[in-house]
Amino acid sequence: MTAKRTFNEALDRFTRQLHLYGGLFVCSFLLIFAISTIRLNHGWNRPPDETTITVALPIPADVLVDVINPQVTDDMTPEEQAAAWQALVDHIVTTLDLHGEIAGAGAVRNGRTMLNVARPGLVKRVEVNVRTQEAIITERRQGLFGTMRYLHLNPGPHRQPQWIGTKAWGWIADATVYVTLLLTLSGIYLWVFVREERKAGIVVLGAGAVSFVAILYALMIA
């Protein structure tokens, strides 16, 4: 057996195993993206189950004075104001034990501030009345398809993720892309060596390429 043949066999075995293991690893992520694609494509989105509760939220005087007392806030620079709002957000998040991707700067308007705390399957909208020191928490449970939709859309292009859960899912989404690209390349390699599928495969590959180019031409040039 020549060295070349040994190398080819090892490469073939390695590619086959890579394709198999990589495919089995990402198959559940691909299902999430594929199923949510169909729903996003048609705007199918069931309203989430919603529950609302009101809870007491004591706010320390030093945090409060920096966000509602005009004698203090009027002299603040935008940076100082942002820091004061952030202190309020941190206090709300810690006191109410909220976990997730937080949206909301903590700006107080008419004695109220609002936060959205989102994680896959669950979004909490927290409206805080800083004068009465109460928080109205609206919980939205998104269900199976809503969670898939959330995972498909996040992290997304519009906001840098802050929460470790979103960052971790971002890594998984990236990994899904890299593995998918690897699967397509290893798939082509493996197909080339299946003699009985070579001719039909070329026809199918060509048909796919022609339809892809034709659609892009219609979308962007014609």
């Binding site: 397509t184 082509i188 197909w191 299946v194 495969g201 590959l205 796919g208 390429a209």
Partner: peptide
Amino acid sequence: IWLGLYMLL
């Protein structure tokens, strides 16, 4: 194989 090749691009 066919699905993979058709959808490649």
